[in-house]
């Protein structure tokens, strides 16, 4: 617990944590504010890319300083998320388009706007 007290560690960790938290929060606000589903996906991906990245780098620096050696554990999460995020995004986008088309085909004379 001595390593993390040094300002060379504490300042970057604190800045990265704040940046990560704020980016996630802004992306999440986008989830609330953006108008259609496809636009909301962009907001959600903010927290998943740079927001998560900042927190992970902060975790790697913090754990390495606390242990006194390089601890790359948290980078494994980056690897998994980078590999899996495109699959989720692609499937969700396709699902939304398919459902929009199926809905417009099924109810062509729907007068009540949902």
């Amino acid at each position: 617990m001595t390593g993390i007290d040094s300002p060379w560690v504490a300042v970057p960790v604190a800045l990265l944590l704040l940046a990560g938290g704020l980016l996630t929060l802004v992306g999440s606000i986008g989830l609330l504010r953006l108008r259609d589903f496809q636009a909301r996906m962009h907001g959600a991906s903010m927290g998943g890319t740079l927001g998560l990245g900042c927190v992970i780098v902060a975790a790697v620096i913090g754990a390495s300083a606390a242990a006194g050696r390089f601890m790359p554990h948290a980078l494994l999460i980056t690897v998994f998320v980078v590999m899996t995020a495109p699959a989720t995004a692609m499937l969700l986008m396709r699902a939304s388009l398919y459902r929009a088309r199926a809905k417009s085909a099924a109810a062509p004379q729907d007068v009540i706007e949902r």
Partner: peptide, 26 residues
Amino acid sequence: LATIITSTPGTVWVDHDPGRRVLRLH
């Protein structure tokens, strides 16, 4: 390319048509 496009917010991969060689993004 799909990984790159998904991990930059502002672009989402929609579909790739290998026959017409068209990539559709949102």
